[in-house]
Simulated assay, not measured.
Amino acid sequence: MAGAMLVLLAACKIPILRDLIGPEVLTAGDHLRRLLEGWQRISGDPTSPSVDQSVQIICEADRFIRHVYATDN
């Protein structure tokens, strides 16, 4: 999931691809983060360091994507 966010981030930096993705990409980060956090709650303690890292990458990529769209308008 983190890899998908990084691909979306790269695509958002290329204007022709950004037009294909559309502003719906702004919901992807929050959605993926909630899925992973929900999965961690279900699986219980201890939390997975790799899932924690994925959530962190998703959040950072989401922040950069939002910045790209904010500066585009």
Rank of each mutant, 00 (worst) to 15 (best):
G3E: 10
I21N: 08
M1T: 09
K13A: 13
G29F: 04
Q40T: 11
S50F: 04
G38C: 05
L9N: 08
Q53W: 03
A11H: 11
R34A: 11
T47C: 07
R33K: 12
G22F: 06
S50H: 06
R33T: 09
D19T: 14
G3N: 09
Q53V: 01
D52L: 10
E37A: 15
P23R: 15
A10N: 10
F64I: 09
L9P: 03
I14T: 12
A28I: 12
T27G: 07
P49C: 03
R41S: 15
S43I: 08
R18G: 10
G3K: 09
D30K: 11
C12A: 13
K13I: 08
L26F: 02
T71A: 06
L26M: 08
H67G: 04
P46M: 05
I57L: 06
L35G: 07
R33P: 00
T27V: 11
D62C: 01
V51N: 02
I16R: 15
L32Y: 05
G38K: 04
Q56G: 02
I58M: 01
S43E: 12
P49Q: 07
M1V: 08
N73K: 13
Y69L: 07
C12L: 11
M5Q: 03
N73Y: 04
C59I: 04
Y69G: 01
V51T: 14
T71H: 02
V7Y: 06
Q56A: 09
G22V: 08
D72F: 05
S50W: 03
L9T: 09
C59Y: 01
S54W: 01
A4G: 10
N73P: 04
A61N: 00
D52F: 01
D62L: 01
V68H: 03
L17R: 15
P49I: 09
D52A: 14
T47D: 11
D72R: 06
D45A: 15
E60G: 00
Q53P: 00
